[in-house]
């Protein structure tokens, strides 16, 4: 685990489920007689800003961008004949949620590959199709930053392993997945995970998922570097991260109230269904202010 005390302004980090961000400010403030160091981050894709107590960074799974070594491990993993995803959707949902929040670059690769191989057995249900795309999006973004290449090269670099050139994808049989099913319902997760697979998600209504997405309008001919592009559909920014680009930190008016800050940061990794542990009794963050840009209409 990277040491978050050695952070400096300009460092690039990865916020689980949100993607690349960079450190814009590190400041120690005194709150109720206690000194606290806050790290301000801007999520590169959306321009949204987040301010988090430094101790919370690691707890929230924030990490440094993967290294070339990590990339090599991921390539080896993608080439390997790895374990199949569980056929039990509840178990799968739980595993994928954990991978996204604490699995690092390899975790993203596992989600993409796991769902992809599963899709060779049967079509993914809508929620998992969305999850597949979100994981793919985060994976491409980080891979491109880690490799220092454009996103197209990053996506193609793993897709020539997942969709081998000149070959069509194999058809899978349930037997290949066997041995992984059958453990269902011993986990007592029903209550927690219901809704992930097609029903409604208990928190974070879909309509809130759209973020401050515009603002990135590059003129033709402007120079660009690799890590820059459009947001993933459902990689919802944290409540506080929905501020339009260039605006002040959304939680700045509540930053001295620990409960609000905690609620915000605690809430982050929950986007795609709760982890199986009981939910701490934490207040919900205030509803995000409406931002510009209308949400897509339902069809």
């Amino acid at each position: 685990m990277p040491d978050m005390t050695s952070l400096s302004v300009g460092d690039r980090l990865v916020y689980p489920n949100q993607g690349l961000c960079s450190v814009t400010e590190i400041k120690t403030e005194e709150i109720a007689g206690q000194k606290l160091t806050f790290v301000s981050l801007v999520i590169i894709e959306t321009g949204a800003k987040v301010k988090v107590p430094r101790e919370k960074l690691e707890k929230n799974g924030v990490r440094r961008v993967s290294t070339a070594d990590d990339v090599k491990k991921v390539v080896d993993y993608l080439k390997s004949d790895s374990e199949k995803a569980s056929l039990d959707w509840k178990k799968r949902a739980r595993e994928n949620t954990a991978r996204l929040s604490e699995g690092g670059l390899l975790g993203l690769a596992e989600v993409v590959k796991g769902l992809q191989v599963l899709s060779e057995l049967r079509p993914l249900p809508p929620k998992e199709r969305e999850l597949y795309n979100d994981a793919r999006h985060l994976f491409v973004e980080e891979l491109s930053a880690a490799m220092g290449v454009h996103q197209a090269d990053a996506e193609d670099a793993f897709d020539i392993l997942l969709f081998v050139p000149g070959r069509d994808r194999p058809k899978r049989t349930a037997e290949e997945f066997a041995g992984l099913a059958g453990e269902e319902d011993e986990l007592g997760l029903e209550g927690d995970l219901i809704g992930i697979d097609g029903g409604e998600e208990p928190e974070t209504p879909e309509s809130e998922v759209e973020k401050a997405e515009e603002g990135e309008s590059e003129g033709e001919g402007e120079d660009e570097e690799a890590p820059k592009k459009k947001p993933a559909k459902a990689a919802a920014p944290p409540a506080a991260a929905k501020a339009p680009k260039g605006k002040k930190t959304l939680i700045s008016d509540v930053e001295v109230t620990m409960p609000a800050t905690l609620a915000l940061t605690e809430n982050l990794p929950k986007k795609r269904g709760r982890p199986p542990k009981p939910k701490p009794a934490v207040a919900e963050p205030p509803p995000p202010p409406k931002k510009r840009g209308r949400p897509p209409k339902a069809k």
Binding site: V71, K72, V75, L78, K79, M147, V149, D153, D156, A157, F158, D159, I160, L161, P165
Partner: peptide, 10 residues
């Protein structure tokens, strides 16, 4: 074809 970390991409 582009030479990528994992091979050549058509």
């Amino acid at each position: 074809p582009r030479k990528l970390v994992s091979g050549e991409a058509p």
